[in-house]
């Protein structure tokens, strides 16, 4: 199959955005998830430094949970963005869920530092 054979009609069902805006937003979500992963790994490393214990376990579990929460929010949004054009609007509830996960990670970090 040559390049000329691939017309717009058999590439996708939905019309493509010429500026690839949904795709860029999707990648922004991916980058943010990656940043959250780095923070979660640092949190795990910090928690495990003091050796095993109840506090270590609780904080580790909490950080993993928050990371999963963030991942869930990002995944839902990424799925919406890969669907129809224009995609559904981003709601304040989604935005606050993502921000609250971030803030809760910072609170865990404070508990680990002190």
């Amino acid at each position: 199959m040559t390049a000329q054979d691939r017309g717009p009609e058999d590439s996708d069902h939905s019309p493509r955005d010429p500026g690839l805006q949904p795709e860029r937003t999707r990648l922004a979500w991916r980058r943010t998830t990656l940043a959250a992963t780095v923070v979660a790994v640092l949190a795990g490393k910090s928690a495990l430094r003091g050796g095993p214990g109840v506090t270590t376990f609780v904080v580790c579990a909490l950080c993993c949970g928050l990371w999963l929460g963030f991942l869930g929010v990002a995944h839902r949004r990424i799925r919406t963005l890969s669907g129809a054009v224009p995609p559904a609007v981003f709601t304040p509830r989604h935005a606050s869920a993502a921000a609250l996960c971030t803030i809760a990670l910072a609170v865990c970090a404070t508990a680990l530092v002190l």
Binding site: D17, G19, Q21, P22, R24, T25, A28, W29, R31, T32, A35, A36, V38, V39, L42, A43, K45, S46, P86, P87, V89, F90, A95, A98, A99, T102, L105, A106, A109, L112, V113
Partner: peptide, 29 residues
């Protein structure tokens, strides 16, 4: 919708800044 998506990406960029600062806090510790 393109303006809304641009606003969403700005939000995510700020959230990454926030995550980087939190990571920096861990790194200092």
């Amino acid at each position: 919708y393109r303006f809304s998506l641009a606003n969403e990406r700005t939000f995510l960029a700020w959230l990454r800044t926030s995550l980087a600062l939190i990571g920096g806090g861990f790194a200092v510790d």
